[in-house]
């Protein structure tokens, strides 16, 4: 394999993995605080639509990304208001958020269908980016990729080292105890939910600004659900999210190449491979003896403070 092709394949893997890393790391923080937000798909597609709309109207990728983040946060705020403010069932509210996001993004993005803009810029460091095999891979990605990896490192540090991260983990482990010690369970959960929304929005914006530089309704194609599965796959540990996302990204790219090679299998079947791989990985992981050992103990439970 030539160095060119080698890099190209690996770069497509990273590109496929980046939106998953972004959405998963946000959902991971939300879940560690004890909130199960199944609306990742809805927040993500809103981020995709608004991100493209913002970037197209302003001509700036940065403004587009910001619009995506804000759209994701707005959706998360709605979810937080319902589940944390009014203690509504999180599963039902999350599913509703996804349906709502899919519909609303189609409506708001209707005027942008069929428009195209350039891909967001890629990093270029003279010399380094031109190294054979790894130059482009390590030093020539678009900025979103570096943001995604930076976020994972930041979240890993925040959860394990910082005092606020400790309080967040405590909230997800036992909200009654957290309340008894005087921690503000609802504020912590709301902020964690907003962070999750921001990350999902950015993941959506990545799709329309860097991955496929155009908007079409329903284009997240289940990536929000995969991101949710990756959090479980990662046992709620930040760096394992990267591993899971790269595996899934790898399977996606592999099946594309398999389709091109035309093994005689139907394309639809090959397209399903990454999703099947995710299910198989989840089943294998959950069948272990310490089943769901890492899941935050208070995940998905509504908290109502007695006063």
């Amino acid at each position: 394999m030539t160095s060119e092709l080698f890099q190209l394949v690996l770069m497509t893997v990273v590109t496929a993995a980046t939106p998953l890393i972004l959405a998963s790391i946000g959902e991971l923080v939300t879940e560690r605080a004890g909130v199960l937000n199944l609306g990742v798909e809805g927040m993500m597609i809103m981020g995709a639509a608004m991100g493209f709309a913002g970037a197209y109207s302003s001509g700036s990728t940065a403004i587009g990304a910001l619009c995506g983040i804000l759209a994701g946060m707005a959706m998360a705020a709605l979810f937080g208001l319902l589940t944390i403010g009014f203690a509504i069932n999180q599963v039902a509210a999350g599913l509703a958020l996804t349906i709502f996001g899919t519909g609303l993004s189609g409506l708001l993005g209707a005027g942008f269908v069929g428009l195209k803009r350039d891909r967001s810029d890629q990093l270029h460091i003279p010399g380094l980016s031109d190294l054979p095999y790894v130059g482009q891979l390590v030093f020539g990605e678009d900025l979103f990729v570096y943001v995604a990896f930076g976020l994972v490192a930041g979240v890993a540090w925040f959860l394990s080292r910082s005092r606020t991260g400790l309080a967040l983990r405590a909230t997800g482990d036992n909200h009654q105890s957290a309340h008894a010690l005087g921690l503000s369970v609802r504020r912590m959960r709301f902020l964690a939910t907003l962070f999750g929304g921001a990350c999902a929005g950015l993941a959506g914006a990545y799709l329309t600004l860097a991955y496929t530089p155009f908007w079409s309704p329903g284009m997240t194609a289940g990536r929000g659900w995969i991101a949710l599965a990756l959090v479980v796959f990662a046992s709620w540990k930040p760096w394992r999210v990267v591993l899971g996302a790269l595996l899934f990204g790898g399977a996606t790219v592999l099946q594309l190449h398999a389709q091109a090679a035309a093994f005689g299998l139907p394309g639809q079947l090959l397209s399903a491979v990454p999703y099947l791989a995710t299910i198989v990985a989840l089943v294998l992981l959950s069948s272990g003896a310490r089943k769901n050992a890492a899941a935050p103990a208070a995940l998905g439970q509504a908290f109502i403070a007695p006063r």
Binding site: R163, L166, A167, R169, A170, D173, N174, Q176, S177, A178, A180, L181, G182, L183, P296, A297
Partner: peptide, 17 residues
């Protein structure tokens, strides 16, 4: 009913207050 966090260490439990 202890106000402790099962999945945190002893030191982390104490640090919280």
């Amino acid at each position: 009913h202890f106000s402790l966090f099962d999945n945190l260490t002893v030191a982390e439990n104490i640090a919280l207050v």
